[in-house]
Simulated assay, not measured.
Amino acid sequence: MASATLWIGAIAAFWGIAYAINGATQAGAYVTVPVPLDAFIDPESAFAHPKQLPEGTSLQPSGNSVDLRAWDSTILEQLLSRGDTAVTGVALGLGAVLLRRLLLSILEGEPFRKGNPSRIARLAGLVVLSGFVANFLPQIAATMVLTRVGLSPSGIPTVHIPLLPIAAALLLLILAEAFRRGSELADDTAATI
């Protein structure tokens, strides 16, 4: 299981980076970015008529938002639109290294080995970092695309803060504290014997 974790992490990191690099080779073609629905609704209209889409753009429904496909993308737009996959892949790769060491110490019968609490805390940091960065990069790409096609005059990205990574990181930090206390108890027990 520890070896499989490392392989899965390596594949995820490779896939995320390769996917982003592949996007950079697609510059000039279509780019797909998630955008809030209110970017296409005229708020001053009582009936909320959709705004006219510029030529070379189209909308596709995607959950609570829509995806905008726009022609004539730039390299930066392509990289940022796929940046969430790259960041998540790299975070999974780094997390797999940390998790492998943790799993090996548990398999060796030393779950409270020195260093395990910090590994779990670093996993929590990776979860938060990847959750925020992976969420923010496509939003920057969406702002760039909306500005380029003339649908967003402000040029300021809309920031949505994901709560799931924060909750997962808090649980990991609680687990790290439990492992730290377990490590202290194991050290105290070894000292008294």
Results as ranks from 00 to 15, higher is better:
80 L>F: 13
106 I>V: 15
44 E>M: 06
170 L>V: 07
22 N>Y: 14
174 I>K: 03
169 A>T: 06
125 G>I: 00
13 A>H: 02
121 A>Q: 15
74 T>P: 02
165 P>Y: 07
187 D>N: 13
47 F>H: 12
99 L>F: 11
25 T>E: 10
164 L>Q: 15
36 P>E: 10
161 I>R: 08
10 A>G: 11
102 L>I: 09
68 L>A: 01
133 V>H: 03
34 P>N: 13
68 L>N: 03
2 A>H: 13
83 G>P: 06
36 P>V: 05
95 G>F: 02
155 G>R: 00
4 A>T: 13
90 V>N: 01
192 T>R: 15
23 G>N: 10
158 T>W: 01
103 L>V: 14
5 T>E: 10
44 E>V: 12
187 D>L: 11
159 V>A: 13
163 L>Y: 15
186 A>S: 11
51 K>G: 02
17 I>A: 12
121 A>F: 05
189 T>P: 05
184 E>C: 00
29 A>Y: 08
191 A>M: 15
74 T>L: 00
104 L>S: 05
70 A>R: 08
74 T>I: 04
145 V>N: 03
20 A>T: 15
188 D>Q: 15
93 G>P: 06
33 V>N: 09
54 P>K: 13
68 L>Q: 04
7 W>E: 01
120 I>Y: 07
60 Q>Y: 09
121 A>M: 13
146 L>G: 12
173 L>W: 03
146 L>S: 04
173 L>P: 08
157 P>I: 03
97 V>F: 01
33 V>E: 02
4 A>Q: 10
140 I>W: 01
117 P>K: 15
193 I>D: 15
89 G>P: 09
143 T>C: 00
157 P>V: 05
119 R>S: 02
108 E>D: 14
43 P>K: 07
190 A>T: 14
54 P>L: 04
25 T>P: 01
106 I>E: 12
108 E>H: 12
181 R>L: 10
53 L>F: 03
22 N>D: 09
48 A>D: 14
125 G>Q: 09
16 G>R: 00
166 I>W: 03
42 D>L: 04
30 Y>C: 07
117 P>G: 09
59 L>R: 14
67 D>A: 08
16 G>P: 01
79 L>H: 09
72 D>I: 01
176 A>M: 07
131 G>P: 06
127 V>L: 04
46 A>S: 14
185 L>E: 13
7 W>D: 04
190 A>V: 04
115 G>P: 05
90 V>T: 03
144 M>I: 06
15 W>R: 06
45 S>E: 11
15 W>D: 08
127 V>T: 12
139 Q>W: 00
180 R>K: 10
165 P>F: 03
169 A>Q: 05
89 G>I: 02
185 L>M: 13
31 V>E: 02
140 I>H: 01
